[in-house]
Amino acid sequence: MKILILGNSHTAMMIQAADDGLPPGMDVTFLAKPGPGPEGLRLDGKTLVAEDPDLIAFLDRTGMPRSVDLSAYDAVALVAMGITVYHAAGLVRGHALPGWPSADGIGALLKDDFQPLPRPLLSVPAATASLHALAEGSLSNRLLGMVRQATDRPVFVVPQPYPSAGLLTRTDRAQALRDVHKAGDGAAIAALLAAAQARAVATVPDAHVLPRPEASVRHGFLTDPAWMRGSLRLGGATGHGEDDVLHANASYGRALFDLIAQATEKFE
């Protein structure tokens, strides 16, 4: 089973896991770049070719291939490069979404004084449509389109890990996420994100969004810090450090390989 993995800095968790050993019979190739991801890839027939000089330099430095023949793989995984819980939290911030725990009983706030609600309403369909539009324009979806042009093998979209639950005890960043947690909307925002992600791949045959490893999820929309501790940077042996709340570790990467292995068995 040959798997091609395209992604951004979050691909490092899978590289880390692969270094420790892959599921039996699995062989993987990575093509990744930190930041937004490997922008500057061109599809030449069935081959993805790096064109951007920065991308080429990074791939050369880290020993990843400059080009990959998509028809040679049994499946492709696209790691992160799409919408995240940060996008969702930024979108809904300051609004009340009917059906969410934080909007329970909100109608009672509309008293006889003719005043509107303190927080404007935002419908879940409108929020989903907006995130879907963002997902459609993401690098993940652009690469999905290129891959699908070249091969009909399964494509797995691997969502970026939720941020670390460790950020709940911090005060410097991600106040919007702490607000979500405080309002009890963690599971609701995760469902919103999942719906938008699912809609973005719904029209692409044999494209599937992989779930996040169930055991890694905390409070519905965050990652247990144990699944992030010891994460490494892409293209090097250095770690992300204590402050990082974004990147998952080899355990998370291993769980993803298991999910891919299960999924490919299912689709074979």
């Binding site: 009917p98 005043q115 369909p125």
Partner: peptide, 24 residues
């Protein structure tokens, strides 16, 4: 709301809040 809302109650909630904002 081209995709519609989940319930009659939600439509009425949106509408009442809308009317009040329009009044303002």
């Amino acid at each position: 709301e081209p995709e519609g809302l989940a319930s009659v109650e939600e439509v009425l909630l949106h509408r009442r809040d809308h009317l009040r904002r329009v009044l303002n």
